[in-house]
Simulated scan of single mutants.
Amino acid sequence: MPNIEIYTSPLCGYCHAAKRLLAAKGASFVEYDVSRDPKLRQDMMGRANGRHTVPQIFIGARHIGGFDDMAALDHAGKLDALLTDN
């Protein structure tokens, strides 16, 4: 399973939805809370091509985007393949 990283903040409903979807898929992930760390938020924005909203999700080296982007991949039947690629 590839390395999965998700940038979040505690009060973000989309962040919680993204984590639930990943958990339902049996995927483990590393979570970074950007709410109190401006440097971490800057790092996220750099990796996410300037996107500043959370969540920002990365699977391996690929930037997935936010929850809506990941949910669209799931509905298209493409998320499972990304989660199992090495």
Rank of each mutant, 00 (worst) to 15 (best):
L40Q: 06
D80M: 07
F58S: 11
A18N: 05
S28Q: 14
H16S: 05
V30W: 07
D74R: 09
K78Q: 15
I4M: 00
G26A: 07
T84P: 08
R20H: 08
G50C: 02
G26H: 10
P10K: 01
K78A: 15
A76E: 13
L21T: 04
A76I: 10
S9Y: 03
C15R: 03
G26K: 06
L40C: 05
L79G: 02
K19E: 09
L40F: 04
T8S: 04
L73H: 08
A17W: 01
G60D: 08
R51I: 01
I57A: 09
L73R: 10
A61H: 11
R51W: 01
I6C: 01
I6R: 01
A81F: 04
P55I: 09
H75V: 01
G46Y: 00
K39S: 11
R62E: 15
S28W: 02
H52C: 06
C12S: 14
H16T: 07
A48R: 02
A27W: 02
M44I: 08
D43F: 06
V34F: 04
E5L: 10
E5V: 14
N86R: 06
E5T: 11
L79F: 02
I57Y: 09
S28A: 12
P10D: 02
A48N: 08
L22A: 07
R20M: 13
G77A: 12
P38W: 02
L79P: 00
I64P: 14
S9I: 12
P10A: 05
D69A: 14
L40D: 04
V54Q: 03
D68R: 00
A72H: 13
F67A: 14
C12I: 05
L73K: 05
D33I: 01
G60L: 03
G77H: 03
I64L: 11
P10S: 03
A48V: 05
S9M: 13
A81T: 05
K39A: 15
H75F: 07
E5D: 07
T53S: 12
A61P: 14
P10T: 10
G46E: 01
M1A: 15
P10W: 04
A72V: 04
R36G: 15
K19H: 12
F29H: 07
A81N: 09
F29Y: 13
V30K: 14
H16M: 07
G13H: 04
E5N: 02
I64W: 01
R36S: 15
E31D: 04
Y7F: 14
L82K: 03
Y32G: 00
K78C: 12
P55E: 12
T8I: 13
I4A: 11
A23Q: 15
Y14H: 13
A23N: 13
P55T: 13
S35I: 01
H52F: 13
H16K: 11
P2W: 02
V30D: 14
L40I: 07
N86A: 13
A71H: 11
K78D: 15
P55L: 08
P55Y: 00
V54S: 06
